[in-house]
Simulated assay, not measured.
Amino acid sequence: MTTGDTKQMQLSEEDISLLNTPLGLKSLLSDKKTNIEKALRSSRHELKIKELQTELIKLQNWVIAKNKKIVVIFEGRDAAGKGGAIRRITAYINPRQYRIVALPKPTIEESGQWYFQRYVNKLPKPGEMVFFDRSWYNRAVVEPVNGFCTKQQYQNFMKQVNGFERMIMDSDTYLIKFYFSITKEEQANRFKEIKSNPLKKWKMTAVDRKAQELWDEYTAFKLKMFEHTDLKNSPWVIIDADKKTDARIEALSYLIDTIPYEIVEEEEV
């Protein structure tokens, strides 16, 4: 970093100290062309996420000690960053006391069951947190848009979903519903990056390939879902996910601010 750069940026002592930490240096060297402003922004984001992750450990300790149950749903368009957000949220909490649920296509047997049955089987036991990477809301948007369910099945779902969630909450379970929202342009950019990266190509599915073409259909069913299921006791938390780091911070902050946990002694956990 040159003196001219420092004067132009008007870096504070705090900025300079941050840039000289391992985190700051890593951010500075992450790009071929040094970008001080970007490195500072990235470092501050990482520090904030670490702070929130530390607080989430305290929240989980309370869940374990008091036998609480938490369900967190992550919905959103393809490539909205749901999986990445879940990974950051769960990075440091006790792996024995949480589960990530990302269900595949229903089996023939599951297809003949009550729609919510396989989700009931994945709900948390006392002292556990469960994170759904897509949930029963597949039937509200993805399935009708792509013709994976009948009109009657969709209508049955919309009639039953609020009652189903009410039963979950009545069983002393906290339910949080996140919707990660991205623009059509951002989704196109992320698809392009995924397809060009040999380590990520596997993420592209047949449904993903049609997502841009069916954008307006997704929007219409998404709005119907919000209108019918955005309730006072189980509201949708819509997160602007065009910037992944900001979205992760917002989701972490909401969890910590919304669930009324208390600090518990280590012996209680």
Score class of each variant (00 low, 15 high):
T2G: 06
K7Q: 12
D15Q: 05
T21D: 09
T34I: 13
S42V: 05
E51M: 10
Q53D: 00
E55W: 13
L56Q: 05
L59I: 04
N61S: 14
I64C: 08
I70H: 03
V72K: 03
G76D: 12
G81Q: 08
G83D: 01
G84R: 03
G84T: 15
A85V: 14
I86M: 07
R88Q: 07
I93P: 08
P95Q: 09
R99E: 05
R99Y: 00
L103P: 06
P106F: 04
P106W: 07
I108G: 00
G112A: 01
Y115T: 13
R118Y: 03
Y119A: 05
N121G: 01
K122A: 13
K122N: 01
V130Q: 01
F131I: 00
V142G: 04
E143P: 09
M158K: 11
Q160E: 14
N162E: 13
G163A: 10
F164D: 00
R166A: 12
Y174G: 05
Y174S: 04
F180K: 03
T183N: 13
K184P: 01
E185G: 11
F191Q: 13
K192A: 06
S196Q: 03
N197V: 02
N197Y: 06
N197G: 06
L199F: 08
K201L: 13
K201R: 15
K203Q: 09
V207D: 08
A211Y: 12
Q212G: 03
D216H: 09
E217H: 06
Y218R: 06
L223N: 11
F226H: 08
H228D: 03
L231Q: 00
V237G: 07
V237W: 11
I238H: 14
D240I: 07
T245P: 06
E250F: 01
A251N: 12
A251G: 13
A251E: 04
A251F: 02
L255D: 14
D257A: 12
I259C: 11
I259T: 07
I263A: 13
E267M: 09
E267W: 11
V269F: 06
